[in-house]
Computed example of a mutant assay.
Amino acid sequence: MPAVDVILGTAGFGEHGRITTPALARDFLDTFTAAGHYVVDTAYVYPGGFQGESEAFLGILDVASRGIQIDTKVRSFENHAHTAESIKQSVEIQFKRLRVDKVRTLYLHCPDRCTPYSDTHRAMNDLYLAGKFERFGLSNFKASEVEIFVKMAQENGWIKPTVYQGIYNMFSRLNEQELFPVLHQHKINFFAFSPLAVGFFSNVRRGQEPPAGSRFDPNTRQGQRSRERYFKDSFFDAVERIDAVSQKYNVSNNSIALRWLKHHSQLADGDAIIIGASKIQQVKENLTSLSEGELPEEILNVINEIWDDIKNDAPAYAR
């Protein structure tokens, strides 16, 4: 069994997120650490639309003093966001929010193709030499772009990317074909986000409009993006097939998804699964599922058959 870690995603932390007070965020962290896990994932832009609130909550709670390690992502999603000066300013702001001098992993959240990658990589290396982070991460980059960073590291003696964070779940597996071989070749760990497809496996059914404020609310930016990824006839068909086999074995769709990811996917030693939740009970349920064993063969067969049917509709692994 691969040694796959579990990380708590804190994109929902913030006054305008789903976990709206530091006190409630503390309860989530207490539940998570009580299960023996000590890494949280955040970013400059979390929660979506109200950047900085997630990092600020973690700073208020002084998580570093509790032995909790922090992975975060620099300001991205804008042209020229990854110039040396922009990255430096981003990190200064972020560390002030987090109330830390150093984080475990510092990611480029997505490609900035308007800035030469050599300039971006040099800036990250300078921050690494200054002791600002331990691991250099990439997120939402294409496999060919990962290889560019690896080559620059080899040629210039710069820090090499050793973590890649990307979407990965039963319905999002395109990275297995192109990205994973590159990561394995260069010994880069993969951290999987959206293991439950933002609730699609459990909270959405054909013909039922999701409630306002949900992650599939068409009036929100996140809802529109989630619907674009998952609201497809082939995906609704697939969920109905998962429903049938889950009922037969008396196991939830979410448990199937998490156990598949931990035990039967292409995750390997040193990789991780990032779980997020809006209720503490969901954290407990997800941790329980991840502590359970392999799935029955019949369920695995259904998952693989589904993938063959939906792969042409699967969302891209990179931006």
Rank of each mutant, 00 (worst) to 15 (best):
T120V: 04
R122T: 12
N125T: 00
D126N: 12
L127F: 07
Y128L: 01
L129W: 06
A130F: 07
G131C: 11
G131P: 14
F133I: 06
R135M: 10
R135Q: 14
F136D: 13
F136A: 08
F136P: 11
F136C: 10
G137Y: 00
S139C: 13
S139W: 04
N140F: 02
S144R: 11
E145M: 04
V146D: 03
I148Q: 10
F149N: 07
F149R: 10
V150G: 06
M152C: 08
M152L: 15
Q154F: 12
Q154L: 12
Q154T: 12
N156A: 14
N156G: 11
G157I: 10
G157F: 02
K160W: 00
T162W: 02
T162K: 06
T162G: 01
Q165W: 08
G166R: 01
G166H: 03
I167V: 15
I167D: 07
Y168L: 10
Y168C: 09
N169T: 06
N169Q: 08
F171V: 15
L174G: 05
N175P: 10
E176V: 06
F180Q: 13
F180S: 05
P181Y: 04
P181M: 02
V182M: 07
H184P: 03
Q185F: 10
F191T: 11
F191A: 09
F191N: 12
F191C: 10
P195M: 09
L196F: 08
V198H: 15
G199K: 05
F201Q: 10
F201T: 11
S202Q: 14
N203P: 06
V204E: 11
R206L: 06
G207E: 06
Q208H: 14
E209Y: 03
E209A: 13
P210D: 00
A212D: 13
G213V: 05
S214H: 01
S214K: 00
S214M: 00
R215D: 02
R215K: 12
F216Y: 14
F216R: 04
F216H: 08
D217Y: 01
N219S: 11
N219H: 13
G223P: 08
S226W: 09
R227G: 03
R227V: 01
R227M: 05
E228N: 15
E228I: 09
R229S: 00
R229Q: 02
Y230D: 00
Y230S: 00
F231V: 05
F231R: 02
K232R: 10
D233A: 11
D233W: 01
S234V: 15
F235A: 01
D237T: 02
A238Y: 00
V239Q: 01
V239N: 05
V239R: 08
V239L: 08
E240M: 09
R241K: 15
R241L: 09
